[in-house]
Design a protein around this nucleic acid. Structure first.
Length: 255
DNA sequence: ATGGGCACCTGGCTGC
DNA sequence: TGCAGCCAGGTGCCCA
């Protein structure tokens, strides 16, 4: 869709994202050809000949490919006009997302250099997780949500992965056994792969880039299910706050 | 080095 | 119906 197409113009309507969109970006991207679109953790990488555009969607961001002359709406902060006449448009009400320019190896960028291995890769395995939890006094839920230890696991999938692994969210990371590390890597991979396959998780009225909701919410065992019966044992699901985020778990299934 | 708390924002929902 | 208050799918930064 984007690859090998030329950017005719970058239009920025609101530069104030998590980090300001650099002033030079319009002139830098003009007439550049998108060579490759890749991803690292939740960062999208648009590779050009002279550098890389690093895009993050934050909590509420979306990117859509739109037909020519589609009228921009509120919170449509920037867009690439392509030689195909289509528009790649970034929409983000909360402005927690970002669009950064970097030259050289994008993986060497300060935001990417320290990221943990890709969760769906072989490098993310039981040995890795067991090693990285050693001597860690934080809870296992906070560890799997820390991108220096595990990437791709946000607040929803953290609770879901731990439920499937039967591990209590408050368990201290260094107390995780080798066997539990093996199970947890497997449940993280499964949860992420399933969620990706069915379009992610839609809560309330969020929609994806095609304007379609994700259906993983129908597969949630614990997230957003406080006081409802556990789908395995019927115990009421518990909710509490951990590091300013809501955690959901089943006190019977998870130990 | 590690871990905890804060910050950035808008909008939807709840309850008075 | 209006509105204040609360909560939200992320994550980098600062400080102890």
């Amino acid at each position: 869709m984007l690859q090998n197409h030329r950017v005719v113009e970058l239009i920025v309507r609101e530069r104030r994202l998590r980090w300001p969109i650099p002033d030079h970006l319009e002139s830098t991207l003009r007439d550049q050809i998108v060579r490759k679109v890749t991803r690292r953790a939740k960062y999208l990488l648009l590779r050009f000949d002279h550098g890389t555009l690093i895009v993050h969607l934050g909590m509420s961001g979306s990117l859509r490919i739109l037909p020519p002359d589609t009228v921009p709406k509120i919170h449509d902060h920037w867009e690439l006009r392509l030689d195909t006449k289509k528009i790649l448009r970034y929409h983000d009400p909360r402005r927690f997302g970002s669009a950064l320019w970097t030259t050289g190896d994008p993986h060497a960028h300060p935001l990417l250099i320290k990221l943990a291995p890709e969760p769906l890769s072989q490098a993310f395995d039981a040995q890795y997780l067991h090693r990285t939890t050693r001597k860690r006094n934080i809870t296992i839920k906070q560890l799997i949500m820390n991108s220096h230890h595990v990437v791709g696991v946000g607040n929803i999938y953290a609770s879901e992965s731990l439920f499937r692994a039967k591990i209590a969210p408050r368990r201290i990371a260094k107390r995780i056994t080798r066997a539990q590390a093996l199970i947890l890597t497997a449940t993280i991979k499964a949860v992420l792969a399933e969620a990706i396959k069915i379009g992610g998780t839609t809560l309330r009225d969020y929609v994806n880039a095609e304007g379609i909701p994700g259906y993983f919410s129908q597969k949630l065992f614990v997230y957003d299910r406080a006081d409802q019966a556990c789908r395995v044992c019927r115990t009421p699901i518990k909710q509490f706050v951990q590091g300013q985020r809501s955690t959901y778990w089943c006190p019977t299934c998870q130990k």
